[in-house]
Design a protein around this nucleic acid. Structure first.
Lengths: 244, 244
DNA sequence: TTTTGAAAAATCATCGATTATTTGTCAAGC
DNA sequence: GCTTGACAAATAATCGATGATTTTTCAAAA
């Protein structure tokens, strides 16, 4: 029986629901740790910029040193963890410039991947896009209920990844995934309440409609705006909290 | 005293010469291994697609298991190594589609990064570009002397990275570095002789001249062509060796 | 008061041994 | 002959202990 924090149950539930893009329930301790640590960082449980003390982490995750080190080493790929010789691991810090770069790169990468998807994507991909949109629209997002926020994050991520999943460029997809991870950390940490001046549902629908209609200009423009608005929003919240 | 293969001496020499973009001579075994393994993979010593037997690797690199596993885990970031639970690590395979994706992404990422560099790069960056160009032009590339090929690869890599180093987007730079690594493996493995139909020196000079003149259209067009030609070239060599 | 430096504590890195999983082999059954 | 399943060998994963490095502490000197 798992002796870790209760949120784990919620975690695995969310994973089961959104299957395709998250790691399957792998069996080695190291791989489980990768998922758990990633979630802990993206959700803000592990504070940005903080040092990861191996002894303490070992205890709080109930694991031995070897799998912990290996998991952290793998997380460097995701840009969520940094490492320095003899200084150990630390959670990647957040900053205004980092957020701005992530936003810029999402705009470039995701619109490129979307264009490619529209160029070569098949009918199955189109169907996946519509399904992901439907799920997203049916998922409630109530700031009063934290579990709906987590659910929404999962299906939202799934929607954006599905949009570009038709592009047949695995490396590009992995970069986009990485950027999305980093971006989601900002949202989950700084954007607890929904901003009222946007109808995000409409934005998503427009992107999806343009996509299945293979209207490259329209779909990419809507996607770029969507990403840009999210970035502007987040930047304001960072500024409010005095983060440079 | 190092008991490994003699090529290590050459390696550290190359690193000293091209300083800025390669890892410094770090001290932990794991970090040294990252460099040694990366070089072994890019140079083709470790065959693409082959399984990495931990026991054998342990012996041939004269290290223990822990730093070896950690180094391999970190190399996943570079796209040079793949991993599967309980199945271990393997050298990332090569394929035509992989090469094509790398070429496409280099075209997109590097021209974007170059444009950004021209937009915000300072005078020091300009100077670095001209210096890198000069070094590249002064470095001989003789298929008969393998050591000149390695030297050339190093300064060539340095040139391309310097070009885009002014962009102030660290994440983008790390993606470009990754793509360049993957690309260099193809060249070092499949392109042992120089193809006669190109004057690569002129191509580099045109890119650099356009860059310091801040002529975005010209510089980016030349860079894109340059990357594209290299891709076409490599694709032909892959086809000759019957790689799908 | 500030700086310096050596000892102590904390932390990271590595190792060898043990445990768990996968892969290969081969004989029994269909 | 082909499949199936148990056994054995190979390999990966994990652990606890030991060695190396960095950081902190604190007293002595400037």
């Amino acid at each position: 029986m798992q002796s870790g924090p209760g949120s784990l149950i919620l975690e695995s539930g969310a994973e089961a629901a959104t299957s395709s893009f998250l790691d399957d329930g792998k069996n080695t301790i190291a791989s489980q740790l990768v998922s758990r640590l990633r979630e802990a960082i993206i959700s803000g449980q592990l504070e940005a910029g903080s040092k990861i003390n191996l002894d303490r982490a070992k205890q709080s995750f109930n694991v031995s040193l070897s799998p912990l080190r290996e998991a952290l080493a793998r997380l460097i790929s995701d840009g969520l963890v940094e490492f320095e010789d003899n200084r150990g691991y630390r959670v990647s810090p957040v900053s205004l410039s980092n957020l701005e770069e992530i936003t810029s790169l999402r705009e470039e990468f995701e619109t490129y991947a979307l264009r490619e998807s529209m160029r070569v994507g098949d009918v199955e991909w189109e169907g996946n896009v519509m399904r992901a949109l439907h799920r997203l629209n049916r998922t409630e997002r109530d700031a009063a209920k934290p579990e709906t926020l987590e659910q929404w994050e999962a299906v939202h991520r799934e929607f954006h990844l599905t949009l570009i999943s038709g592009c047949r460029k695995p490396l590009l997809l992995s970069f986009c995934k990485t950027m999305l991870n980093l971006n989601d950390r900002y949202r989950r940490t700084f954007l607890t309440r929904t901003s009222g001046d946007r109808n995000v549902s409409v934005e998503h629908s427009e992107i999806a409609q343009g996509t299945v209609a293979r209207d490259m200009e329209y779909a990419c423009d809507r996607l770029r705006e969507h990403i840009h608005r999210t970035g502007t929003n987040l930047r304001r919240h960072l500024a409010e909290k005095g983060i440079a």
